[in-house]
Design a protein around this nucleic acid. Structure first.
Lengths: 339, 339
DNA sequence: TTGTAAGCGTTATCAT
DNA sequence: ATGATAACGCTTACAA
């Protein structure tokens, strides 16, 4: 081993480029930042030196002096949910496409303290903006109360609130699928809801209630679930005892699948004895037995729009206004007619 | 509006703290970095000033001078797969718990150029280490050839290769579940494999082949799938025509669910006419009809171990050696006996 | 135990 | 159109 082999080579700096190009380091900086007044031939010399040295700007130095990091933070509190996960992926892609890095932070605990700490951590990292994927009501209210010092956009948040927010139209989707059940002749429809604190759970429940009310049908107190298939199964075995309903709208597909399992184990046939519908259109929804009627959402598009809104805020541009994304009904065999 | 209202207040710096505490800024730095030789009362004064001013160190400045960012990069090429997604979440948590930020980068295109660009981007961001979740053989070989300048750990990679790698024991899991089928009396077992380029797909196929060979059973050329339920469905309807087998081992649960659907549509009963087993134990696996026999993997633990290994490399410590994680068989009704 | 000085690699400001 | 100089906020020397 040569004596100097352990010495980590210093990366070329803007001054090295300047020296090689025979200009000042400031001129190099101008080229880098596409300053208008620079002679083409000077620019060419600089670009040449840059490629010869394989120079890359030091992002930390740039962040220090500009106090911007070209990084977006993603604050999520949605461990393993299908929808948010899809949105996160598209947020990352969209952000990277615009030249932003992405720093993600998972919230395992949604106490106000934990939320505050998470936001502060992201701010400490100098993120230029934050995407909040924390569908819990509580998270959102904490955020409103804490005067976050960087722009942020909240997904899956009740419309009409203060922060800029965006999501597919949950209420409309829930209404749509409940109307579908009604159109099939069902008059006694239960709802297996999501956790109380979740904004989406509330929206889907409201859509369900609105649809029933407008059709002058009886409503039942919703059963509170936790999004999991295991809970759905449990609910199915319990519900099978009371037979005062002919259809159940589960607030997500995963619970719906568990629910069907529970019903089956209790001897109920789907859809002959009871119809089951879900929400989200997860990839296996079309392939379970029987195939699950559900509401399809375009999660990736939600992610892309989110980034566009956040970047507009950061850049001080006019923030684009999007209509809510329209969810689509996917009718399959799990919902049958009651004629 | 007051004339100064638009002036963004400067964050307090180490010098502001020093002034308030009546010490030099260097002393403050020492307190921050827990330097041993500092008088307790001086330290107290400094900590006091820090909390009064609500001072937070500027991470960009620190990164500039130390040329370390306290950030880990995650390079993933696994859009929406269940396993990797679970691992990513636990990697993030483990990294944050150790005081590291996490920068994620999704690879949408796994060409060598794209991989190279992704790694360079992460290096540009000064990540201290990279976790590679890119189960494609191709990605891994590119990585080996490009002399990445920061430590990296690769998940789901063939054991015995150069880079530090880690995953649950795919071969053993595949063997285990194939042996289960054999023990049930099956002698003609097909394999619906994953995409050719995926390391996990190869490992699971090898486990299948090994088990059949050791039992002196005939092997069939594996069918190449793409991990999706839709492909599984297609394969099911096709395979239903040839009846030279009594069981199929699908390389993941999602394909297995599609496969069962295809079989059902073709008039085959599961498990009476054909047994189906999967791999991964996704949350709905226990709740589809019939419940799916599969191999359970502890993805979160893989993530945690990965971070421990990567941090040890970064810190120049002894890198811990873990045995491969043992996957567990989950026997359910989709696999029946042939007695 | 503490303080002083220098420098990390950039952009911003003011010259020229 | 270009250059010189001064920050940005911190850590690493080295000195006292």
């Amino acid at each position: 081993m040569s004596s100097n082999s352990s010495e980590r080579a210093r990366m070329p700096s803007i001054r090295d480029v300047a020296r090689l190009a025979g200009v000042s380091h400031q001129t190099v900086s101008r080229v880098l930042n596409e300053h208008p007044s620079i002679r083409p031939e000077t620019k060419a010399k600089v670009l040449d030196a840059i490629s010869v040295l394989d120079y890359r700007p030091n992002l930390a130095a740039r962040a220090l002096v500009t106090s911007r990091s070209n990084t977006l933070g993603i604050l999520s509190a949605t461990i393993g949910e299908f929808g948010p996960t899809s949105s996160i992926a598209s947020i990352e892609d969209a952000a990277r496409a615009e030249g932003y890095s992405v720093s993600t932070l998972n919230l395992t605990d949604s106490s106000p303290e934990a939320i505050g700490a998470a936001v502060r951590q992201l701010v400490r990292e100098h993120v230029d903006g934050i995407v909040v994927l924390a569908p819990q009501v509580r998270v959102y209210s904490v955020l409103k109360g804490m005067a976050v010092s960087v722009p942020f956009v909240s997904l899956q948040t009740a419309s009409g609130s203060d922060g800029v927010s965006l999501s597919a139209d949950q209420v409309a989707g829930a209404r749509m699928i409940t109307d579908h059940l009604i159109a099939q002749g069902h008059t006694d429809i239960l709802h297996l809801a999501g956790p109380q604190d979740w904004i989406e759970a509330e929206s889907r429940m409201r859509g369900y209630l609105d649809a029933l009310r407008d059709a002058d049908l009886p409503t039942f107190p919703p059963i509170r679930g936790d999004w999991t298939a295991d809970f759905g199964y449990f609910a199915g075995t319990e519900l099978a005892r009371r037979r005062d309903f002919t259809a159940v709208f589960a607030a997500n597909d995963v619970m719906a699948i568990g629910l069907m399992h529970g019903f089956r184990d209790a001897g109920l046939r789907i859809p002959e004895d009871v119809s089951v519908v879900g929400f989200d259109d997860i990839p296996v929804a079309a392939h379970v037995h029987p195939p699950l009627t559900t509401v399809h959402q375009d999660f990736p598009e939600v992610g892309r729009r989110t980034v566009r809104i956040l970047l507009a805020q950061i850049r001080g541009e006019q923030v684009p206004v999007f209509g809510l994304l329209a969810p689509e009904l996917r009718v399959r065999e799990s919902s049958g007619s009651r004629s």
